[in-house]
Write a protein that binds this DNA or RNA. Structure first.
Length: 413
RNA sequence: CGGGGUGUGGUAUAACGGUAUUACGCACGAUUCGGGUUCGUGUAAUCCGGGUUCAAUUCCCGGCACCCCGACCA
């Protein structure tokens, strides 16, 4: 894409009311726009990143047998009353609205209830199980205090997967499969080395859940890590009993602030019993379905990447989620650069071409701010030597590549 | 939800109760052309409502919004 066609612009300063690094950088770079507290619009560059993250997640969910569907945002009050999760005293994050005739509706903040009811229409026999179903959807949560930029929003994209199994053993097999997929996802989006599966409260459903926690000072959680085993647990479950359970000792634990980027739960029969999701086993006996749920917030993942990978000059996107692969800068060499832009684009290499009529310094600093993985500079020196200057965003090293060699260089990198 | 704070051009800021400042941006012209070039001209603002006052961006009251700390976060 030509940068002169992009309707967003960079800013030198962030709005004074944005404190979090992710929001400051994403706003300055023109990736997001703040609509209200805790409510952000995604602009073209930001949407590309978000979509790339979603696609990584989708690939991994599909790879473990997940089937994608789309549930509704509008929620049926009567359904949620059956599990006692409609009342504001039970769930304080509801946004509620009403039909013109007065019928109350909710805006979905999670989807265990509707998907469980939906599955009663689909699952009747052990032959129908197991099932892994997931969706990407905008969730609404009336947070008492929005903060941390795009990491704690009142309206946000979430991937939620639900598993349905015949037995506890089958459930554990599905759970392990999703858990492994989550590890691959965080690895692929560039958060692998610093993201831990941490034991956390299981809520009302089971003894533990596991949270995927990315170590960052911007985090709102505190986790304790046993660095030799790689095991971790949330501060909320740090008791002697739990430590004994997990075979950990306090002396070996290191405390870190962290961001919860994913959470996986065993639900058991918590929802299948009240909502009547049962199946007939091989003997003809009726049994409730064993369930699990698994969430990742792509927007929070994006904010986390911005928090932990960016540097003083700006954003740094891993190639897997970057809005473009190459940022092509013309320093008064527009004709040649356009030729190269056409060649890269024709080869399927996603390229943002800075064709603006502005100074070299402007282009360099904006390039650093946007955080595209590779910067390619074509200037007078290039025209003389026949070579482009290629610099990875994460490195200070510059490589000279001949004009003719650029396409194959980026096909291989 | 408890406590604290802040609302001035698109952004960041200044102004004792007395002509709304400056920088960035944007427009035009010139200049420059490998790390946010330089110069000139121009453009654009006091959250909303009430009160005190000769006079309110400034003081007071109410509302709204935003931020911070804490609590909360199946």
């Amino acid at each position: 894409m030509r940068q002169t066609q992009l309707f967003t612009k960079t800013k030198k300063e962030a709005p004074k009311d944005e404190v979090s690094k992710n929001a400051q950088l994403l706003i300055r770079a023109g990736f997001v726009h703040k609509e209200m507290a805790g409510v952000y619009s995604f602009l073209p560059l930001g949407l590309k990143v978000l979509s790339n993250i979603i696609n990584v997640i989708r690939e991994e969910m599909d790879a473990i047998g997940g089937q994608e569907l789309a549930l509704t945002a509008l929620q049926d009050k009567e359904l949620w009353q059956k599990t006692d999760r409609w009342d504001d005293k039970q769930v304080d994050v509801w946004f509620k609205t009403a039909l013109k005739n007065g019928t109350e509706l909710g805006l979905g903040w999670t989807h265990e209830e509707p998907i469980t009811r939906l599955m009663t229409q689909q699952i009747a026999s052990y032959r129908d199980l197991p099932v892994l179903a997931y969706q990407f959807q905008t969730k609404f949560r009336n947070e008492t205090r929005a903060k941390s930029g795009i990491m704690r929003m009142r309206e946000f994209m979430m991937k939620d997967m639900y598993s349905f199994a015949r037995t506890e053993a089958e459930h554990q097999e599905l759970y392990a499969r999703v858990r492994a997929a989550y590890q691959r996802i965080f690895e692929r989006v560039g958060l692998g080395g610093r993201t831990y599966a941490a034991f956390a409260s299981g809520g009302a459903f089971s003894k533990y859940s596991e949270e995927f926690q990315t170590v960052s000072d911007a985090g709102e959680d505190l986790i304790y890590i046993d660095e030799t085993s790689g095991q971790a647990l949330n501060k909320e479950v740090l008791t002697d009993e739990v430590l004994a359970d997990l075979g950990l000792t306090r002396e070996n634990l290191v405390e870190k602030k962290s961001i919860e980027v994913g959470n996986i739960f065993t639900l058991g029969t918590k929802f299948s019993v009240p909502l009547g999701l049962t199946f007939k086993d091989e003997t003809g006996a009726m049994a409730p379905v064993m369930m699990g749920c698994y969430g990742i917030g792509p927007g929070r993942v994006m904010g986390t990447i911005a928090e932990v990978l960016s540097d003083a000059a700006g954003l740094v996107w891993p190639a897997s989620v970057a809005p473009f692969k190459v940022h092509l800068l013309s320093l008064n060499a527009d004709e040649k650069t356009l030729e190269i832009y056409d060649a890269l684009t024709a080869a399927g290499i996603e390229t943002l071409y800075d064709d603006r009529d502005t100074s070299a310094g402007d282009k360099f600093s904006d390039s650093d701010l946007l955080g595209i993985p590779y910067r390619v500079v074509i200037g007078k020196r290039s025209l003389a030597s026949g070579q482009a200057e290629v610099k990875p965003r994460v490195s200070a090293d510059v490589e000279m590549i001949s004009f003719e060699g650029l396409v194959s260089y980026f096909t291989q990198h």
